[in-house]
Amino acid sequence: MSNAQLKKEIIAYSKRIGIDKIGFASADPFVTLKMRLKTQQDLGYQSGFEKGTLEERTEPDHLLPEAKTIIAIALAYPSKLKNAPRSKSGERRGLFCRASWGEDYHHILRRKLGELEKFIAERNPDEKCLSMVDTGELSDRAVAERAGIGWSGKNCSIITPEFGSYVYLGEMITTLDLPADTPLEDQCGTCNKCIEACPTDALIQGGQLDSNKCIAFLTQTKDFLPEKYREKIGNRLYGCDTCQVVCPENKGKNINNHPEMEPDPEVVKPLLEPLLTISNREFKQRFGSISGSWRGKKPIQRNAIIALAHFKEKSALPALFEVLKNDPRPVIRGTAAWSIGRIGGLETEKELKVAKERENDKEVLQEIEKSLETMKYE
């Protein structure tokens, strides 16, 4: 079988197993990407979640010797939440971003790539393959761009003509020498809507992101959130969709090809107050199957506390007082102190002063003192 014929068979098989889009790229080094990543590194724009050295991230043969081709895949995910529960006074809700709806996409894409690997191995048992999804060394976006899946948008997402940027990406490095596809031309043009809409100005310019300012990154951190970003978070518990929602290429795009990606409204838009005291077991049972749970419950709880301040939810004050008094984690106590101060009310001053007397952690004390200084009494 010729390599061109094998490529056709792989494409046909990918459609049969539910892969929405597939592309093929050479495994040559990503020279331009390497320079861009070095610049990001020098400017301090990296998140710290990146894996591997610059060479491993840009030279596929460092990961798989004799690599010749990279097969890129994309699966489209839904953008509309059906039967979404209302967030109202006394029952405020947070929100997980669309990329955390349904089953964890890492598992879904790995299954698809595993099926592709098996299909290839049955026809070419001597060839080697190495698959990765998101947490691998290679840049999913750079591979997808080279493979013609879509163009790299100013919002730092791959934008496909068919599905917009609402796609999950994965790739497989292989020693097979398959014909490469042609990259798509950039179609963002003069549009800057994503850059203008970014809540924290994390998009420095088209295609350049300061990860440390990005809400999607900030919601995943475990330490105190810098105060200047707390009000920007709103009711986001995990991730941020702003730069995708405003993108004209995403208008009207809502794909429901994969039942396992369909969101449970009560999971992705949960009540905030119960999150403050959720146990590890309860958290795992309820949220463990979605990608937004990967950092554990602490960031989600901290973000829920910030969200209650965003809503100025006075009915949550008793629960926040309990957190400030009894939670063993300084980040959670300190964030609760900040939230209490932002919500305000006559009863809060007494609670904060009592907390100040018993508190030993320096950072928590700073949060209490700032809240007492800036507290509103209406």
Rank of each mutant, 00 (worst) to 15 (best):
E50F: 13
L116G: 00
Y105D: 07
K68L: 04
G90S: 02
L63Q: 07
F119I: 06
K51E: 00
R57M: 06
R110H: 13
R110V: 00
K88P: 00
G94Y: 13
R92A: 05
R92Q: 11
L113I: 09
G52D: 04
L109H: 01
R57A: 02
F119G: 01
E55C: 09
E117K: 14
D61R: 11
A99R: 12
R93K: 11
S79K: 01
L116A: 00
D104I: 06
G48S: 06
I70G: 10
A67R: 13
G48L: 05
R93A: 04
E122Y: 06
L64M: 04
K118R: 10
F96R: 04
N124A: 11
S89A: 08
K51N: 01
E91R: 15
L116S: 00
S89L: 09
R57S: 03
N83Y: 10
P125F: 06
G52W: 08
H62F: 07
D61T: 02
E50H: 14
R86H: 07
R57N: 06
H62T: 04
F119W: 12
I73V: 11
L54C: 05
R93L: 09
D61K: 14
A74D: 07
T58N: 04
P85R: 11
A121I: 09
E59N: 14
A72H: 07
I73T: 02
L95Q: 14
I70E: 12
P85C: 09
S100F: 15
L95N: 12
K82A: 08
L75A: 05
A84D: 03
K68M: 04
S87D: 12
P125R: 07
S79D: 07
H107P: 05
E55Q: 07
S87E: 13
E56Y: 01
E91P: 08
L54N: 10
K68H: 06
C97K: 02
N83P: 03
P78I: 02
F49C: 01
G90A: 07
E59L: 14
L63G: 01
K51L: 03
K112I: 00
S47W: 05
P78W: 05
E122N: 09
R123E: 14
G52Q: 07
I108C: 08
N83R: 08
E66I: 01
E122F: 07
A76F: 08
F49R: 13
E66F: 15
I120M: 10
E59G: 02
F49V: 05
E66Q: 15
R111T: 03
R92W: 10
G102T: 02
F49T: 06
S47K: 07
N83V: 04
L109G: 01
S100Q: 06
S89I: 09
A72W: 08
E59Y: 15
K82D: 04
W101T: 00
A99V: 09
L113T: 02
S47I: 05
K80L: 14
D61Y: 13
E56C: 00
